[in-house]
Amino acid sequence: MPFNTAAADARAAILTVLSSWSGLIARERKLAPPARTVRSLVEFAVRHIDWLTAHFAAADLTREVAHLVRGAQQVVQPGAGRRVVVGACMEPECSGTLVAVVLPREHGEPNRIVCTADHGHAWPEHEWLRLRHRMERGQTRTAVPSVARTIRWLSAADISHLWHVAPGSVYRLASEHQWRRRNHSGRTYYHEADVHHALSRRVTSV
């Protein structure tokens, strides 16, 4: 059988990170380190999880483990992308949770936010800004991916990413539709409402 390089790399990364954190536990708690196998390292870390979570570097541990999980998932389900919990579904009487499915760029399919209870409750990328406003009005805490979470003025790169428009076309559309704009640190930003009004109609008509 062919050698799975991606799986080997993921396993090596897991072993390296677990060894590092287990070594920290052993040094600071004056304990004998565990055997350098994934199973032994995980069991050792779990036994000391209360101490680890109280450590000043606990946030770094969380980030590193999350990165390892994403890497392993890409090996098991290549092209599956990552999932980000957004918040409660905004549709009336729906008890589901909204999850952003962020796919690798080479996947060729648009990213989307989908309800876990009803897949008919879904928002493609170009609707994320509108969804954010709706969630804010409903006072629902949101974790919509950063490009759609905090921006009122959009750069050409933001617009290109959200609506899958070639960057060169953004400037043409801005001129045609007379989008409001402002400059900051040498970059041009366009008014979110103008962009959404023009491009949402464009997507709907396709």
Rank of each mutant, 00 (worst) to 15 (best):
F44I: 05
R29I: 04
V46P: 05
V42I: 15
R27D: 13
E28P: 04
R36E: 15
R36Y: 09
F44A: 02
A58D: 04
A54W: 00
A45W: 02
K30Y: 06
T37G: 14
V42K: 13
K30P: 01
L52V: 02
A54T: 09
A45M: 11
D50G: 12
A57C: 08
A32P: 03
P33S: 08
A58W: 01
A32K: 10
F56W: 05
L24K: 03
A35N: 09
A54L: 11
H55Q: 06
S40H: 14
T53M: 08
F56D: 12
P33I: 05
A57S: 14
G23S: 10
L31N: 12
A35M: 08
L24H: 02
A54S: 12
D50P: 06
F56M: 06
T53K: 12
G23C: 01
L24I: 06
E28I: 01
V42E: 07
P34K: 10
A57K: 08
L24F: 01
R27M: 07
T53F: 07
E43P: 01
E43L: 06
A32W: 02
T53G: 04
E43A: 13
W51Y: 13
V38T: 15
V46H: 11
A59G: 14
G23A: 01
F44C: 06
D50K: 11
P33W: 00
T37M: 09
K30V: 12
A26R: 05
W51A: 09
L52S: 02
D50C: 13
A54C: 07
V42D: 05
P33E: 03
V42S: 10
A57Q: 12
F56Q: 09
I49W: 11
P34Q: 07
K30N: 11
K30L: 10
E28W: 01
G23M: 01
V46R: 15
R39H: 11
L52W: 00
V46Y: 09
L41F: 04
E28F: 00
S40W: 03
V42H: 05
R39E: 15
T37P: 07
R39M: 12
A59D: 14
A54E: 09
H55A: 10
A32M: 05
R47C: 08
E28K: 04
A32N: 10
A59Y: 03
R47K: 15
P34D: 08
R39Y: 12
H48Q: 14
A45E: 08
R27V: 04
I49Q: 13
I49K: 10
L31S: 11
E28A: 05
S40L: 07
L41G: 08
P34W: 04
A26E: 05
W51H: 08
R27G: 03
I25V: 15
R36V: 15
A45R: 06
A26Y: 03
I25D: 00
W51I: 07
F44P: 00
H48E: 12
H48K: 09
V42G: 03
A45C: 15
T53C: 07
T53L: 11
F56A: 13
D50Q: 13
A58G: 08
P33Y: 02
L41N: 14
A35P: 03
V38M: 09
H55T: 02
L24G: 01
T37C: 06
I25A: 04
R39S: 13
V38W: 05
K30F: 01
A26P: 02
R39L: 12
